[in-house]
């Protein structure tokens, strides 16, 4: 024998729901429509907006707030211990990640990048040999391979992406960070310099060029023999050092440091 559970009875639960959300049929019969109760979700949303209006009308210190640049979520920033990191809760963009002695390490790495790029420009990059003919190309040769007509534009942008922009970024970082690390006031135009360095980040393509070398190596393997020159190894280490340097860079800390010095 089957017994209906009390909760299956439509009288109790269903009635309450109907009162909150009148169906189409009832609306016509009962005359003026009863106002639907807002869902908890909406109440939460309104509450949040109201809270926003209230809070934004109060005078307060905006310096300790931080907004995620990717999704606009707002947080209260605080100084983290070295090695700690904080990321945005919903989009996981890294917000604050200070590292021990990061400034000094970044300066050292930047100097080595400059020296290595200089060396990589000087020495032969790749060497090729086939049936008695030999040829070697430097980094500059590779960048300026597109020499005729319209392709000159390509030469210039390749040169910029693999040599000039990485070099410029390193110099900008040195310019901005050196005074901060040695507790001196920042140099003139340090802020636009750091902003430029950040804006150029996606256009620095040294690592892509290094992988391009590997692909070209395999591509002409059946055509001729290719050997890596000393410049290739210098360039490869530049790629690795740039990545390490990027890991040490905490943007928020740099901007805060630039701010403190003005105050």
């Amino acid at each position: 024998m089957r017994v209906d559970h009390p909760s299956r009875n439509t009288s109790g639960r269903k009635l309450g729901d109907d009162a909150a959300f009148p169906g189409k049929g009832e609306r016509d019969v009962d005359g003026p429509r009863e106002r639907a109760w807002p869902s908890p979700r909406e109440v939460l949303c309104w509450g949040q907006k109201l809270w926003g209006v209230l809070v934004s009308s109060l005078p307060r210190n905006l310096d300790d707030l931080i907004a995620c640049p990717q999704c606009d979520a707002l947080y209260r920033a605080k100084e983290l211990a070295h090695g700690e990191r904080s990321s945005c809760l919903r989009c996981h963009t890294q917000l604050i990640a200070p590292r021990k002695k990061a400034g000094m390490i970044i300066i050292m790495l930047s100097l080595s990048i400059m020296i290595l790029i200089g060396g990589a420009l000087w020495f032969p990059f790749l060497e090729i040999s086939r049936s008695g003919f030999r040829n070697s190309a430097t980094l500059i040769d590779a960048a300026l391979a597109f020499s005729d007509g319209l392709l000159v534009f390509l030469s210039l942008s390749v040169l910029a992406m693999i040599v000039l922009i990485p070099l410029l970024r390193v110099m900008l970082v040195l310019y901005v960070l050196t005074p901060l690390v040695f507790d001196k006031p920042p140099r003139a135009h340090a802020r636009p310099a750091f902003r430029l360095s950040e804006a150029l980040r996606p256009w620095s393509m040294a690592e892509i060029f290094a992988l391009g070398c590997a692909v070209s190596l395999v591509k002409v393997a059946d055509l001729a023999r290719i050997d890596f020159g000393p410049a290739f190894w210098m360039f490869a280490s530049v790629v690795v050092i740039i990545m390490v340097q990027d890991r040490y860079m905490c943007r928020w800390s740099v901007w805060t440091a630039l701010d403190e010095d003005r105050a």
Binding site: V55, A67, C71, A73, L74
Partner: peptide, 28 residues
């Protein structure tokens, strides 16, 4: 990824965020 979490955004609070340096300012 906690995609469905509603977060209070700078705009909700009547603020505008700098996407370059993450600092927030009054919306105007």
């Amino acid at each position: 990824m906690a995609g469905v979490v509603h977060m209070t955004t700078a705009r909700d609070m009547g603020l505008v965020a700098c996407t370059t340096c993450t600092k927030v300012w009054p919306i105007a």
